[in-house]
Design a protein around this nucleic acid. Structure first.
Lengths: 132, 132
DNA sequence: CGGATTTGCGGGTATATACACGCGTTATGG
DNA sequence: CCATAACGCGTGTATATACCCGCAAATCCG
């Protein structure tokens, strides 16, 4: 039952991978999208939503809503920047904890994916995805 | 910047591909998810939502809601099957039209993806995605 | 300096997606 | 046959995602 459509195959693979990572990260209380967003926030340290959207390649409004969930969870803090328009996001202590706690769980999910493909194929896959 | 997480890379690639296909299919009035769902419905001819969920690898409730949109658009028809529990979906004339009209547009999006990768790489990508 | 433009956000709207719950229908066993 | 289990759905709830609109702040120019 081969699906010839790249897009549908990608969407299905993304759903499946999401499920695997979400399950692995379940003990952390956040899903893979949130975990990754937390990592982006940590990496950037006090970013605006627009900038966060740029680095995650997501729509600004999407980032804003996703950040709001993390804020409600007490994992990040949102404050106005020097530019009064900007809403700068910073990782809270609980957010750091989640990242630390989740790191090995994430790695486990990574290994699970790599188990489905040869190491070379996995690397090739990442490269292909990023050159799209 | 290279993303080491298979899941995030997959999700990003899926979003990007979705955007490409959605743009290509815009004249049809349906997006790639709907286009693909229409194709699945056509292929199956009078399927239950559960069966449709199985072939598309989507949650039944997701399929139900997506089908409802197509029904509202007048592209598919939902009726009770011989089994009174089942909601069988069939393609309407307008649905067939959309598939016919959209086929070359979809093919154009496929070519666009293939232009980003070598033909061998594209084939390899599909295989990798499906073995996940 | 003040109007025009740009920039950054929030919120409205819509689809996609999954999981859990509850209801009605069908199938199964005793 | 009827009680019970299994099945198929719809709906509630929640997140993810994007596009558009409008407001407010910052920047640009004449």
């Amino acid at each position: 039952m081969v699906n010839q459509c790249y897009c549908i195959a990608l969407r299905a693979a993304a759903r499946k991978a999401t499920s695997i990572y979400d399950t692995a990260l379940e003990p952390t209380g956040v899903n893979i999208a949130q975990f990754s967003l937390l990592r982006s926030i940590k990496r950037a340290t006090a970013v605006s939503l627009t900038e966060l959207g740029r680095v995650t390649d997501l729509d600004r409004s999407t980032v804003g809503r996703n950040v709001k969930v993390l804020e409600r969870m007490g994992l990040v803090r949102v404050a106005a920047g020097s530019d009064q328009r900007e809403a700068t996001v910073t990782l809270d202590d609980a957010g750091h904890d989640v990242l630390r706690f989740g790191a090995p769980l994430w790695a486990g999910a990574q290994r699970k994916i790599e188990a489905s493909l040869s190491p070379a194929t996995a690397a090739h896959l990442l490269a292909s995805l990023q050159s799209l």
